[in-house]
Structures are given as C-alpha cells and as structure tokens.
Simulated scan of single mutants.
Amino acid sequence: MSFTADSLIQRIHRELLDHSDEELELALAEDGDNFNALFDEQSHGGSEQDARRQYFTELFRLQGELVKLQSWVVKTGHKVVILFEGRDAAGKGGVIKRITQRLNPRVCRVAALPAPNDRERTQWYFQRYVSHLPAAGEIVLFDRSWYNRAGVEQVMGFCNADQYEEFFRTVPEFERMLARSGIQLIKYWFSISDQEQHLRFLSRIHDPLKQWKLSPMDLESRRRWEAYTKAKEVMLERTHIAEAPWWVVQADDKKKARLNCIHHLLGQMPYEDVEHPTIELPQRVRREDYSRIPTPPELIVPQVY
C-alpha cells in the first residue's frame, strides 16, 4: 500500500486536528456559555469550521440526551450492557469517552479488562466478565469483551480449536440468559478500512502523545489483517441473535462514527424525561465563635501559573 506525500500529510493533519478538538470539547464543556467565542479562537475558517461547529453542536445535543437516558435508567432500574468491539484504532475508546463524558460514573462505568491472569485462565471463560455486569439502574460499557475469544485469542493462537468452538456454543445461551435476567445487551462492531487503520497507526507512531496506544499486539494485528477479517466475519455470523444482535458502525470518519453510534444507542431504549425536584441551595450556617485556621505556607502548591 502506498500513499502520496500530500495525502499522508493531510491525513496526519486530520488526526492532529481531532486531537485538538478533544481539548476543545473539554473547554466548551467548562464554558458552554461562550461556545462561539471559544470555538472561533481555534477555528480554521471555511467549510472545515462549519463542519466542526456542526459536530460540536450535535455532540453536545446527544450528550444532553444521554443525561436524560441516565436519569430514566436510574428511575426505572433498567440494566444495560454495551459491548464495543472492532479492530485496533477503530475508535472504540473515542466513542466510549464521549458517552461517559457527562454521565455519573456511579451509574455509567467502563469495564476494560486486562489479559486474564493464571488463575482466571482456569475459570469458566465468562466468569471474570460476570462480576462487571450491572445492577438495577446501571449502565456498563465493555471496552472489548468476551468476544476476545472470537477475535484476538483465535487469531493469535491464545485458545485452541475446542475452546474456540465451545465459545460459539456457549455465547448465544449466555447472552440469552442475560436477556432473561433483565439485562439489555447492545453489541457494536466498529468497522474501518485497511487503508484507514494503516494511516491511524502511522499517526500514532509519529505522535508522542499517542505512541502508548500502540502495543506489540497491535502491530502484529496489522500484519494479520486478513486473519482478523475472517475471524470477524465468522463471529458476526455465529453470534448475531435476536436477543442481542450486532450493530456495525462505519468508522472511517471518527466524528461521524461517534455521532451515529450515540444516536443509535439512544434509539435502543424507550427513555423519557424524568422530573427532578427543584433544588434550592441552603443558607450556610455561620457561628460567631468560628475562626478559620490559616493553611500553613509549606502545604500550599506553588502558584507557577
């Protein structure tokens, strides 16, 4: 695969712009009243500016809906599990970040399990995932999930043929059990092209702030693109069930993928506005005999900025 110098520069520019937009999102979240002023400070003019403004406007609208969804989940005691699967650099972490950004971590939490330890390898395969399932009024986002067995474990040889086949025999029943217990399971596959993954890996290699995202396993997965493709096709075919269907997010455009995924997620639950009691700030109690003790100077962080 080859790229012209101009196309590679443009693609890396897009990656850097996306990184700066993450910082802008945080700034806008802190100072939403000055949306236009903050945005114009970092905008680049023309259609690119309009596209970015539209992205932020829609993202914040959808995040407002996620807050409403959260309130409904708490009120109704709904239980939700959302799986995010896809190739390395497909954008799973980016959409998870946008979903959780405005939500209460006690209600909506992320489960990103490391490789199993020696003890966990001897357990029932699904056992270590079960402890992360939600109670009533909770949402759990799995950044990769039990589908590791159908993907990386199969491609990299971390499981044998019998374990692989047993996974496919078990997982439909496991997920039907979750559904019968009242857990709603939503499964997303983030799909990117061969060329897009290649460019995202190049961008990470040349960005010191993102090099940590590239592991030896990621690089090996790049070499085994075709094997991962075949494993994904088998996985979708054998685990797409009525109780927990797969949904494929076209993810070559990160921003559109985030918006499309969140919009679709909101449509999977019949949430509605929840009335909240009016909040009144109580008057602070003041006592005549109270005197605040000055903080010792040696405890204060130097004001460098």
Results as ranks from 00 to 15, higher is better:
M1V: 03
M1D: 06
S2R: 08
S2V: 11
S2T: 13
T4E: 02
L8W: 01
Q10C: 02
Q10F: 11
H13S: 05
H19W: 15
E23W: 00
D33G: 12
A37I: 15
F39M: 03
D40F: 13
S43L: 09
S47P: 14
A51V: 13
A51M: 14
R52W: 00
Q54V: 09
L59T: 01
Q63A: 05
G64A: 02
K68N: 06
T76E: 09
L83G: 10
L83F: 12
G86N: 06
R87A: 02
R87S: 02
A89G: 08
G94I: 09
G94H: 10
I99H: 00
L103G: 12
R106D: 15
V110K: 00
V110E: 02
A111W: 02
L113C: 03
P114I: 07
R119T: 15
T122G: 03
W124S: 04
Y125N: 03
V130C: 14
A135E: 15
E138Q: 10
I139A: 04
I139F: 03
D143Q: 07
D143V: 00
A150F: 01
G151S: 07
G151C: 07
Q154V: 12
Q154L: 13
Q154W: 13
F158I: 08
A161R: 06
D162V: 00
E165C: 03
E165L: 06
F168W: 04
R176L: 06
L178V: 08
G182V: 06
Q184C: 10
L185N: 09
K187L: 06
Y188N: 07
F190Q: 07
L202F: 15
R204Y: 07
R204F: 08
L209D: 08
L209G: 04
Q211G: 00
S215R: 07
P216D: 07
D218E: 11
W225L: 11
Y228Q: 09
Y228D: 03
K230T: 15
K232G: 09
E243I: 03
E243L: 05
Q250I: 06
D252T: 05
D253L: 03
D253F: 12
K255R: 01
K255A: 00
C261A: 11
C261F: 07
C261Q: 12
I262G: 06
Q268W: 08
M269Y: 08
P270N: 01
H276C: 05
H276R: 14
T278P: 03
T278L: 08
I279N: 09
P282K: 01
Q283I: 13
V285E: 14
R286A: 13
S291Y: 14
R292L: 14
T295I: 10
P296I: 02
I300R: 06
V301M: 06
Q303P: 10
V304M: 14
Y305S: 05
Y305R: 01
